[in-house]
């Protein structure tokens, strides 16, 4: 046995034993909050930024191509869709209805599509868009921070993005969120 001094282990203060249970309480708290959040949806970086300049390919001869100028002067919706997108089919009747009642001008960005398939899709389900541009290689989509379709941007008169809707526009979302916001944007001076 060596003669080196041996420490007696300190009796740690009583509250030390409370650290683990306290830490657990905090962790469980965060987990509980975490459960109410969807890890898939990203916060929008685009809000209050001007729409980027873009050049899109014309989809078909009968529908005008979407250009940057069309987004100035009045409040518009820019809807990102694709013929491959299942939720877009679900959303489509709502867009048709908005366009039929002429509530707002909707422009379409046909994302990652081919002219043939995109046009066929619009033929089949109807065209609610004032103009449509084809974004085959995601240039505009990436510029807009799009992660999936459908996504819809509410653009004000000055051509700034004011709101982004991720996922299909439902009647509820239109009535409660988009329509009131669009109305107030209409009243803003340019």
């Amino acid at each position: 046995m060596s003669d080196a001094p041996i420490s007696t282990q300190r009796q740690l203060p009583r509250w030390f034993a409370l650290i683990p249970v306290g830490a657990l309480a905090v962790i469980i708290g965060f987990f509980a909050v975490g459960l109410t959040r969807d890890p898939h949806t990203l916060p929008t970086m685009m809000v209050d930024r001007p729409m980027p300049e873009f050049q899109l390919q014309q989809l078909t001869d009968d529908i005008p191509n979407l250009t940057s100028d069309q987004l100035r002067g009045h409040v518009t919706l820019v809807n990102v869709f694709g013929s491959w997108c299942v939720s877009c089919v679900a959303e489509h009747p709502m867009l048709m209805e908005l366009s039929r009642q002429n509530l707002v001008t909707i422009h379409g960005v046909d994302w990652r599509d081919t002219p043939r398939e995109g046009a066929a899709w619009l033929n089949r389900y109807g065209n609610p868009y004032a103009s449509v541009g084809l974004d085959a290689d995601s240039r505009l989509a990436i510029d807009l921070g799009v992660t999936g379709a459908p996504e819809t941007f509410l653009v004000d008169k000055a051509g700034r993005v004011r709101y982004k809707q991720i996922g299909p526009i439902t009647e509820e979302i239109w009535e409660e969120t988009l329509a009131p916001l669009a109305r107030s944007l209409e009243e803003e001076p340019q």
Binding site: P5, S7, Q9, R14, V21
Partner: peptide, 20 residues
């Protein structure tokens, strides 16, 4: 862990040892 906080002190710790 709550049980641990309450009871841990009653459990005997063994013989002491040096840092090294």
């Amino acid at each position: 862990l709550a049980l641990y906080a309450i009871r841990a002190r009653t459990v005997q710790n063994g013989p002491p040892f040096a840092g090294v």
